[in-house]
Each structure stands twice: as structure tokens, then as C-alpha cells.
Simulated scan of single mutants.
Amino acid sequence: MIVLGIDPGSRKTGYGVIAGEAAGYRVLGCGLVRPRASDTLHERIGQLCTGIDEVIAQLKPECVALETAFVGRNVRSALILGQVRGAVLATAMRHGLPVREYAPREIKLAVTGTGSARKEQVAAMLSKMLDLGSDLKPLDVTDALGVAYCDLARSASSLGAQIGKSGKGRGKGWAAFVNEHPELVA
């Protein structure tokens, strides 16, 4: 299964594409879609859709995973994020891709083992688990990778897929990883 995780934003949208294979998880691509800051919101949303279209065409995901919307104190920001999320959902639907959504706590739990992890902990854990190297990715990118990872981990566990049975991903390998890196799940 190939999953496109997206962390939507009007100024920059993070994306991460992960393939779940019998041998574990492999990052096919990740990065940011950055619309021109000087453009109107409508123009930026159009540029985000074009950028996501390009990612889908190049990396061929089988589904899209997104973090569920949360209500903050700033109503204007929530409305803008809602418009961006709507554009992302419409783009996925235009490509015929199913969309799955996960709560922030569920994503953090899938990646770090605790639902209260900080963004930096999620990024550090993903960097080690997905062998991203020492090149630190922006948090928008690691957030997107976390969404994709969560989808793969949830799909594997709910379907009893071979990833979970082989000890890769979150099975036996997860326990060994946590024992080797306790500072990342504290």
C-alpha cells in the first residue's frame, strides 16, 4: 500500500508518501508545497492543488491520509484551514483516491507510543524509524509523514497484514526500537 500523508496549510503544505511493504516502510518522497506568499488565498489554494496533483502523478499513492481538523481559538485561521482541507479533499477525490482521517493524538500514539508527544519527538522518531538520515525535515513534512505512517500502521494492525505479522513496523521491531531509544518516547 502506498499512502500520501498531507499536513495542510495555506502558506505551506507538507506531504509524505510511504510504501508499506513486507520488509517494512519505505519513504518514496516528501517535501513542501509552497504557494507564493504574495498571492491571494484563492490563488494559493489553486497552487496547492496543482502541487498535490503533481505529487500524486509522480508518486502514485493508493490513498490519502489527513489529520482531522481541530477547532482553535482563532476562527479566521480555522476557516482558512477548512478551505485548504476542502481543496485537498477535492483533489484526492478528483484522482479517485480514498481519504482517511486521523486525530492528532492517534497519529502521535502510532508514531511514538504516546498521544501526548511533542512535534519534535514525532519528527525524531520518524527520522530514525524511516531512516531519514541526519537531514532534519521541516515539521510540516514530518507531520505529513506521521499521518501516512499512522495510516499504514492502523491498516496493518486492523487487517492483520503481513507487515505486523513479520515483526516489522510496529510489531516486535517497535519494542526493540523503543528499548534502544527511550529518550524519543519519554
Results as ranks from 00 to 15, higher is better:
residue 106 E to V: 09
residue 150 C to V: 13
residue 149 Y to C: 14
residue 83 Q to F: 00
residue 130 L to F: 04
residue 134 S to R: 13
residue 74 N to M: 07
residue 98 P to H: 06
residue 114 T to F: 06
residue 131 D to R: 14
residue 14 G to W: 13
residue 36 R to E: 14
residue 30 C to A: 15
residue 99 V to I: 02
residue 69 A to C: 01
residue 181 H to T: 13
residue 56 I to K: 01
residue 6 I to N: 03
residue 57 A to N: 07
residue 79 L to E: 02
residue 67 E to M: 01
residue 134 S to P: 02
residue 154 R to F: 12
residue 63 C to N: 05
residue 170 R to D: 14
residue 146 G to K: 12
residue 173 G to C: 15
residue 64 V to I: 03
residue 15 Y to I: 11
residue 3 V to A: 04
residue 50 T to L: 11
residue 107 I to P: 07
residue 147 V to F: 12
residue 144 A to R: 14
residue 133 G to L: 00
residue 149 Y to R: 11
residue 78 A to M: 09
residue 98 P to T: 04
residue 92 A to W: 06
residue 36 R to V: 14
residue 182 P to N: 05
residue 80 I to N: 06
residue 156 A to V: 00
residue 100 R to H: 03
residue 183 E to I: 02
residue 46 G to A: 04
residue 161 A to I: 00
residue 40 T to K: 10
residue 158 S to W: 12
residue 100 R to Y: 10
residue 93 M to S: 14
residue 6 I to V: 15
residue 18 I to V: 07
residue 107 I to Y: 11
residue 86 G to E: 02
residue 159 L to I: 02
residue 126 L to D: 06
residue 140 D to C: 00
residue 24 G to V: 01
residue 165 K to M: 10
residue 60 K to W: 08
residue 125 M to P: 03
residue 18 I to E: 15
residue 83 Q to C: 02
residue 94 R to N: 11
residue 8 P to S: 10
residue 58 Q to N: 12
residue 51 G to Q: 01
residue 151 D to M: 09
residue 100 R to K: 09
residue 75 V to M: 00
residue 31 G to V: 14
residue 169 G to F: 03
residue 72 G to Y: 05
residue 95 H to E: 02
residue 45 I to F: 07
residue 35 P to E: 09
residue 78 A to K: 11
residue 149 Y to K: 13
residue 26 R to K: 13
residue 28 L to W: 10
residue 36 R to M: 09
residue 55 V to L: 05
residue 164 G to K: 05
residue 64 V to K: 02
residue 61 P to W: 04
residue 44 R to F: 01
residue 141 V to R: 08
residue 184 L to P: 08
residue 89 L to D: 04
residue 15 Y to V: 06
residue 125 M to A: 14
residue 88 V to C: 07
residue 125 M to D: 06
residue 48 L to E: 07
residue 40 T to W: 04
residue 40 T to R: 11
residue 135 D to A: 06
residue 59 L to P: 03
residue 64 V to P: 01
residue 180 E to Q: 15
residue 92 A to K: 08
residue 88 V to D: 09
residue 38 S to F: 11
residue 117 A to Q: 15
residue 7 D to H: 01
residue 38 S to C: 10
residue 79 L to G: 10
residue 129 M to K: 14
residue 179 N to K: 15
residue 28 L to Y: 09
residue 115 G to P: 15
residue 90 A to L: 03
residue 129 M to E: 12
residue 42 H to R: 11
residue 160 G to W: 05
residue 95 H to S: 07
residue 140 D to F: 05
residue 124 A to H: 12
residue 80 I to H: 03
residue 51 G to V: 05
residue 80 I to P: 06
